[in-house]
């Protein structure tokens, strides 16, 4: 009887903690969503609620709820264009990464060969490298080749993110298939490309979908390269969320905060939905399969 009560108590505590942790996760997001629904009435009351800057406490502003920022984001301003840009760049970059990474991942899963350590190391390095270590060469070369602020230039630079994800995740998915299946195929006289097309790929198709989605989200969320290499033509959503939907970079700070939040909300929706769809593979994606 006593232990039953204890058990129930610990269950309640656990649920309270779980709900508390969920609030912790959702709270900032809900603030962002809600901010997007607000607009400050006038400059005299700028800032929402109470606000602290340094030692100074600032008074309340008059606030009313409105969907205007969302409507503005989706209709009036260049926001839909950002979504389209991000999609074009991410999809084309992921497709190229699949074309290159799929056969490479297959070979790394199936064979031992000289240089495998190098490729693995290089892919890990691409995954972890500070963008500044490659940014300036890209900056100079893109300037020379006219690739600055172009779709193909952005799709190419994002291979740094996508190639390791696709190659290493696919390598892991191929490794998950019992190796005797491939040996049976070898012994049957099948060529590597036949095995890849008819045996390996059909079996790893859900994995490929997960890897592609994961790479897409990674590109969608990327900010750094977008900050330096995009301009008015190919500006992506994660950069646009930051710098505002109008083209003025400095105008967001106080004046456009609601807009920033409306844009941020819209930007994370596809990323969150896609990530939840592939949540089983999130850890594999982030660690390139090292954490297994």
């Amino acid at each position: 009887m006593m232990s039953q009560t204890n058990k129930n108590n610990s269950r309640y505590i656990r649920y309270i903690l779980l709900i508390f942790a969920s609030l912790w996760v959702l709270w900032p997001i809900s603030i962002m969503i809600e901010e997007g629904f607000r607009v400050d009435i006038g400059p005299a009351f700028s800032g929402r609620g109470a606000s602290f800057v340094g030692e100074f406490f600032q008074g309340q502003g008059g606030i009313r709820f409105t969907t205007i920022e969302y409507v503005k984001a989706l209709k009036v301003e260049a926001y839909p264009r950002l979504l389209v840009n991000s999609s074009i760049i991410a999809v084309s970059s992921v497709v190229v990464a699949i074309l290159a990474g799929l056969p490479a991942g297959f070979t790394m899963a199936m064979y031992k060969f000289r240089g495998k350590t190098f490729i693995t190391y290089a892919l890990l390095a691409m995954r972890t490298i500070s963008p500044f270590a490659v940014l300036l060469p890209f900056f100079l070369i893109y300037g020379r080749l006219g690739l600055f602020d172009t779709y193909q230039g952005m799709a190419f630079v994002y291979l740094i993110i996508n190639l390791p994800i696709i190659t290493m995740m696919m390598r892991g998915f191929f490794k998950d298939i019992p190796k005797e299946i491939f040996e049976a195929a070898f012994m049957s006289g099948a060529s590597d490309s036949y095995i890849l097309r008819k045996v390996a790929l059909p079996l790893a198709l859900p994995g490929l979908a997960a890897a592609a989605v994961f790479a897409f989200v990674g590109t969608w969320n990327e900010f750094f390269y977008a900050l330096f290499l995009t301009g008015t033509v190919t500006k992506t959503v994660s950069r646009g969320v930051w710098s505002g939907f109008s083209e003025s970079i400095e105008s967001f700070k106080i004046l456009e905060f609601d807009e920033l939040n409306a844009g941020g909300t819209l930007a994370i929706i596809p990323a969150v939905i896609l990530s939840l769809a592939v949540q089983r593979y999130l850890a594999r994606g982030v660690t390139l399969g090292a954490a297994e």
Partner: peptide, 26 residues
């Protein structure tokens, strides 16, 4: 599922989410 949502959010958006005049104002 709830807990992993932040992994999907762009870091720059997290920068906005956790900005002093967002969470800490409330």
């Amino acid at each position: 599922s709830i807990f992993i949502i932040p992994i999907a959010i762009a870091p720059i958006v997290v920068g906005i989410l956790w900005s002093p005049n967002s969470v800490f104002d409330d």
